[in-house]
Design a protein around this nucleic acid. Structure first.
Lengths: 166, 166
DNA sequence: AATATAATTTAGGTATACCTAAAAATCTAT
DNA sequence: ATAGATTTTTAGGTATACCTAAATTATATT
């Protein structure tokens, strides 16, 4: 698996901190299936960089900086997951892929994803083109685009060069 | 930067092999800004795993297996790049992000991306909803959806629950 | 409060992906 | 064909993200 980033750890601390005040090495160790001794090292590093307040033998809490990073990362994660699910990904796959993508995408790409989700979600009915894509993914057969829909789309398109359209 | 995968190396060998029969340590080293000595190690590893035929001092060529992986990776890369550009990413950003995504996405997600590109590309005019998204990304203002378009979309939507629509 | 149990840290180890410097092989120009 | 320049490899080093085993500290039971 990919090397874990600071964001990964901070986000995990954030999640675990909801149930208990302080997050202990064991919490992280069992969540990530690594040795508690390794988590001690991670805590020391996160502490160095001021993402957590670390006190020997008593675990960590997030600092303001850490919380900020965690929330930002979660936001990205949720948007990406929703984005993938809108496109037809299964929930589980979307979860996993979002977790990878949240660390690598350029901010401007992330912005597009956010806006994509926003725009599609403010449509209270699944847009036709999305249904069409999903059906294609599901069945392997791309449904025809009704000609009256195509014509209207063409009419409102700015880059006019009449052909078929979603 | 992310740890380079076997796919990264194999793809690069594939690209470099177009101009010259054999790919040498120096070719990879200067492409990736790493030391030629490191490339020797990489060549040995790729050779072990049968992605390349490696002969000391004379560089490598791809094996059948290596070529297969390279082509599959390139296909993913190109589809992802196009996908991102269709959504409004700049070419350079799309290139970089595609390069990261190609290694991490679940095959089923990759399939959706491929189909997305295919569906949008067979529209010979940019679909209205995509133009709308792009304008939103560019300007921060989401254009209104013309009511006659919304109505038609609603008519053809399968999950009926009338509201505004792309 | 003392002690047994559990959690945490320390110390030292492994694997890997890079590095540098020097040795070895290959290429080039005469 | 060979000397000099270039490329490649080898040998040994660094950094890091993990590990195990043993030592230390905290917690829980009586």
């Amino acid at each position: 698996m990919r090397k874990k980033t600071i964001e990964d750890y901070v986000e995990l601390v954030f999640d675990l901190q909801k149930n208990k005040k302080r997050v202990h090495t064991n919490d992280i160790a069992s969540a990530l299936n690594i040795n508690p001794a390794s988590v001690t090292e991670i805590f020391q590093k996160l502490n160095e960089a001021s993402y957590v307040n670390y006190e020997k033998y008593t675990g960590v809490t997030l600092t303001k900086k850490g919380r900020k990073v965690a929330i930002a990362t979660k936001k990205k994660h949720d948007a990406l997951k929703e984005f993938l699910m809108l496109l037809g990904c299964e929930k589980k796959t979307a979860e996993v892929d979002a977790c990878e993508m949240e660390h690598i995408l350029h901010p401007s790409t992330m912005d597009i994803v956010l806006k994509f989700v926003e725009v599609v979600k403010q449509c209270k009915v699944t847009p036709f083109w999305l249904e069409r894509l999903k059906e294609y993914v599901r069945t392997g057969e791309l449904p025809k685009c009704p000609s009256e829909l195509a014509e209207i789309c063409l009419k409102y398109s700015k880059t006019k060069n009449k052909k078929n359209i979603l």
